[in-house]
Simulated assay, not measured.
Amino acid sequence: MAAISLEKVERSAPALVSLYKSAGASMRRNGLEAVRAAVYLVVDYSGSMRQYYADGSVQALADRVLGLSAHLDDDGRVPVVFFSTDVDAVTEIALDDHRGKIDRIVAGLGHMGKTSYHLAMDAVIDHYLDSGSTEPALVVFQTDGGPINKAAAERYLCKAAKLPMFWQFIGFGDRRSKQFDFLRKLDELPVPAKRVVDNAGFFHAGSDPRRMSDAELYDRLLGEYPQWLAAARARGIVTDG
């Protein structure tokens, strides 16, 4: 059973009902109906992301993540970290206030800088630990390119493998770009030589991410989560959820 009922979604966020239903179908396909998790969204606010804010791609991703989170978490809210050279904002999106929320947040942010994964990862880890959550976390991490400090990003991911957190990276942009080679490397870091469990996945959403169907997006978001959950439980990293 979903953490938030269809009836509540219909009342609080009617525009997200179809996303909620699509996410539920993907949860069933992946055997995750009974799973609970804290859901996070991390979005790239570097200069090259400007087009994806302007054309609604970031808002569309936020709405889709909200539709999924309603199955996994009962508070109707998703913490969101905006990052570029530094962490630009740690805020949230909610079912009952999702329309245009990304534009409203971005209107209060400053210069769009470069890309520092590890600072955003640190912000998510801090938020999760401070929250006192007893559920594992699913972190949806969107970017359109590689980080300015690759060594730090790899180090944070490997250290975070000891925590009940799974990082699902999503690439926006040209599928042929070398910018995503590092994310492919992160996805394939060896276990146990580099990290205690495989705690990350990566997929590419293309140059127009809105064109990826809801069903495909949710299946990609959830595709590696069951394997991570089993491995993390086996290692005692996850004890519930």
Rank of each mutant, 00 (worst) to 15 (best):
M1Q: 10
L6Y: 02
R11N: 05
A13H: 13
V17D: 07
L19T: 00
Y20R: 05
M27L: 10
R28E: 14
G31Q: 00
L32E: 00
E33V: 02
R36M: 06
R36P: 00
R36Y: 12
A38Y: 03
Y40F: 14
V42C: 12
R50W: 11
R50N: 14
D55K: 01
G56R: 00
S57G: 11
A60V: 05
A60H: 10
V65M: 02
G67H: 02
L68K: 06
L68V: 09
A70N: 01
A70P: 04
H71A: 02
L72I: 04
D75R: 02
R77W: 08
V78K: 00
F82V: 11
S84R: 05
V87S: 04
V87Y: 06
D88I: 00
D96W: 05
D97N: 12
I105A: 02
G108P: 01
G108K: 04
G113Y: 03
G113M: 02
K114H: 13
K114A: 13
T115Y: 06
Y117A: 13
A120R: 11
A123Y: 14
V124T: 07
I125Q: 10
D126P: 06
H127P: 12
Y128A: 00
L129V: 05
D130T: 15
T134F: 05
A137K: 01
N149A: 10
A151N: 12
R155F: 10
Y156P: 06
L157A: 07
L157S: 10
K159I: 09
P164T: 09
M165Y: 04
M165K: 00
W167Q: 10
I170Q: 11
G173F: 06
R175K: 11
R176E: 14
R176C: 12
S177K: 08
E188S: 15
P192N: 08
A193P: 08
R195E: 09
V197M: 05
V197F: 03
D198W: 12
F203I: 11
S207F: 08
S207Y: 05
D208L: 15
D208I: 13
R211Q: 13
S213M: 01
D214Q: 09
L217I: 09
L221P: 12
W228E: 07
L229N: 04
A230T: 03
A231C: 00
A232K: 00
D240N: 14
G241H: 06
G241Q: 03
